[in-house]
Amino acid sequence: MTDQKKQMEFKVDLTPHFDDVFKYIGSYNRHFTISFFILSLVYTSAGLDATAVIFLLPNIVHWCRVEELDNHCVEIGLNEYDCQQMKSKYRHHDDNSTTINEEYCNQYNFTAYDFASNSSFKNTPTLYCQNGFEYDNSLYQTSVTEEFDLVCENTYLISLSLSLEYAGLLIGSLIIGNIGDRYGRKPTTVVSMLLWSIFCVGTMAAQSYWMYTLFRLLSAICATGGYITAFVYGCELVSPSKRSLAGSFLNFQWAIGYTLASLFAYMIQHWRYRLLAMLVIQALISVLICM
């Protein structure tokens, strides 16, 4: 009985572990270190994508598009700036609104109003915006909020899109991590990045709110799977004594992605072109990982 226990202990002691490789190659290996830095770029891309949604779905000042006011600008020969100044005097403001997206959802009914009379219009009946909206483009030339009119009664669609995107993060973390354990970290990371890029193209080409939301959901699934797998893969490339530092460095790369998102939003005013810049970064990272 004693001999059997000794044999079992001896067999357990000989069980190989992945970390045993560092006993032979040392805590520093040039190839592993370069691979780790390349993988860390996945976190930069993930931070960029996670923050980009703030600039894709911003709260934008908007007003009702009133045909009577547009016609009046033409009649009296106002330029674009003076026309906007004139319109601001005739806009209806909801004092009970709680967000920017709900402030200007109604307009005065100017159908029978005589602008030449200069009479008070405050008692003029109001109605919901009849001809769509105009937007303040001083910060963003285009955005998802503006393109799909996610204001007033459609404001809830912004929260819905964000909720579905976070649901995608949950789904990806539950599924793709297990796929990485089964089929390998590197192929899972590469495939996740490639699919992430493809869905980014779909988002960029979206012609409706629901198409945009669907592709953002799919992108979130691949994104979270990609950076979770990359985190584990990256930490396995460094010795156990350096893994706390490696994890901190990966989070630092995420912060760099956050910063880049703000820079992209400042430099690229069109939301589709902004996604195109993100797509280029993701594609380059995928190529580097494959090398």
Rank of each mutant, 00 (worst) to 15 (best):
V151P: 02
T189Q: 10
L263K: 11
L260E: 00
S286L: 05
P187R: 15
M267T: 10
L150K: 14
L260P: 05
E80L: 04
S241Q: 12
F10A: 14
M1V: 07
I175T: 13
P125I: 05
P16M: 08
L194Y: 02
C83V: 05
R216E: 00
S241G: 09
L160F: 03
T98P: 01
F121S: 10
T51R: 15
C290S: 15
I34Q: 08
N137K: 15
C129D: 01
L279T: 11
M1D: 06
T98E: 07
G180I: 00
R185G: 02
Y140K: 08
F133E: 04
C64H: 09
V42F: 01
T98M: 03
D49R: 12
G172I: 01
I34C: 01
L174G: 05
E102I: 01
E134P: 01
D136M: 03
I38F: 04
S197Q: 04
W63M: 09
P16W: 02
W210N: 13
V238W: 04
F32T: 05
D49L: 09
D13Y: 04
Q130G: 03
L218T: 06
I268L: 07
M267H: 13
L195K: 08
N131M: 10
E9I: 07
F133H: 15
F199G: 02
I228L: 10
I179M: 07
I256N: 11
P58I: 10
F115Q: 10
C152K: 12
L14A: 12
Y140V: 00
L139C: 02
F18S: 08
Y43I: 02
S208Y: 01
S248Q: 12
T44V: 13
D95L: 04
V191M: 12
A112E: 14
E147M: 13
L41R: 15
C290Y: 08
L160N: 09
S143I: 03
L174S: 08
G184S: 10
L288N: 08
E80H: 13
I60D: 01
T142Q: 11
F249Q: 09
H62L: 02
P16V: 09
S119V: 02
C222Y: 06
S117I: 04
V21W: 00
I256Q: 10
T188P: 07
E80N: 15
Y43T: 07
N251L: 11
I171L: 11
A246Q: 06
C73G: 10
L157Q: 15
L250M: 14
G168C: 06
S117Y: 03
D19C: 01
E165N: 11
F55L: 06
A206G: 14
R30E: 00
C64E: 07
C83F: 12
Q141D: 07
H31S: 11
Y166F: 15
F110E: 08
Y108S: 08
F22V: 06
S241P: 01
K5P: 00
I289S: 12
I198M: 11
R274M: 12
L250C: 02
I228G: 01
V287D: 12
A46I: 01
P240L: 02
C200P: 02
Y183V: 12
G26S: 14
D13R: 15
T124C: 09
L276I: 03
R91Y: 11
Q253P: 00
R243C: 02
Y104D: 00
S45I: 05
H92P: 04
L14R: 15
I221T: 06
V190R: 07
Y258M: 09
G247W: 00
V42N: 10
D94A: 06
G184W: 05
I38S: 04
G247I: 01
